[in-house]
């Protein structure tokens, strides 16, 4: 596989790398569903889910902080949940005065905000571990096994092959623009509309090159006997170890859900 900065896959020989992508993808999806179903403020459950993340991270041999570092991605979105601190009714924890308005931070508000932050952080870490240990073509095979239409998977597969080519093209265009217009790092030249028009023309030419390329690819495919049917290799059955891993994972997540809903 072409090694490229866009590829999130990190090469390795760990047990997690070797595990079948179908098992990994289904368990990650179930994990995220389980996180989503965990009630607000179920702190023990969050701790348990975090230990699951940590143990999977340990099995990935990428280092415990790998997923952690890449999980801060969700931080900007937390702005959306910030108003919950002051809009939820309940006992007042603290009062913040913000330019004439006095806002009351409530205990249930804080609980809800922290729960959302933790849940999204847990979910994103698991997704990071999936993409770091599974090459995208394997994930595509797993998607087909989980019932995603063959055609959509074929389109995604082709997209994956050409993303690198077109991303390189886009980077070359940006380098060319930077070389030609003065102080592109700062304000850049011209008015905003001029800069936008230049960017638009770059997008237009990228679009056109993609279009022409797709035509050439189509003819190349025709020349090699493509007749419109998407053929793929039959999926190999899961080994017994893989089935045990899948079963254990499902059992752990399901019992966690039962416990939090009936004891919590």
């Amino acid at each position: 596989m072409h090694i490229h900065p866009l590829d999130a896959y990190r090469f390795g020989e760990s047990p997690l790398h070797r595990l079948d992508a179908r098992v990994k993808l289904s368990l990650v999806l179930l994990f995220i569903l389980c996180v989503s179903l965990t009630p607000t403020g179920a702190w023990p459950a969050y701790v348990f889910l975090f230990t699951l993340v940590l143990s999977v991270a340990a099995a990935s041999e990428l280092g415990l902080t790998y997923a952690l570092k890449r999980s801060f991605l969700v931080l900007p979105f937390l702005f959306a949940a910030l108003p919950l601190l002051v809009t939820t009714r309940g006992s007042v924890l603290a009062e913040v005065s913000l330019g004439g308005w006095s806002l009351e931070v409530t205990a249930p508000g804080l609980e809800r905000f922290l729960s959302i932050a933790l849940k999204s952080w847990l979910a994103v870490q698991m997704a990071v571990l999936l993409t770091a240990t599974t090459p995208l073509p394997d994930i595509l095979v797993a998607m087909r096994a989980l019932g995603v239409p063959r055609l959509l998977v074929a389109i995604l597969g082709l997209m994956w092959r050409y993303i690198f080519v077109l991303a390189d093209e886009a980077l070359r265009k940006m380098r060319a623009r930077e070389a030609r217009s003065a102080s592109a790092g700062g304000k850049g030249g011209g008015t905003i509309t001029w800069r936008a028009r230049v960017a638009g023309q770059m997008v237009g030419s990228l679009f056109l090159r993609g279009y022409d390329r797709s035509e050439r690819i189509y003819h190349a495919m025709l020349a090699r006997g493509y007749d419109g049917t998407v053929r793929s290799l039959p999926l190999k059955p899961l080994s017994s170890t893989e089935r045990v891993v899948l079963g254990t994972g499902i059992a752990i997540l399901f019992s966690l859900l039962l416990l939090t809903h009936f004891l919590g």
């Binding site: 389109i155 050409y162 230049v198």
Partner: peptide
């Protein structure tokens, strides 16, 4: 028909790459 896989796949890649092209506002 059968043109769709190459066309959709490459155009998806083109849109993905096109999202990298930006212009500075202020």
């Amino acid at each position: 028909d059968e043109r769709q896989v190459p066309l959709m796949g490459v155009m998806a890649a083109a849109i993905f790459a096109g999202q990298m092209l930006n212009f500075s506002v202020t």
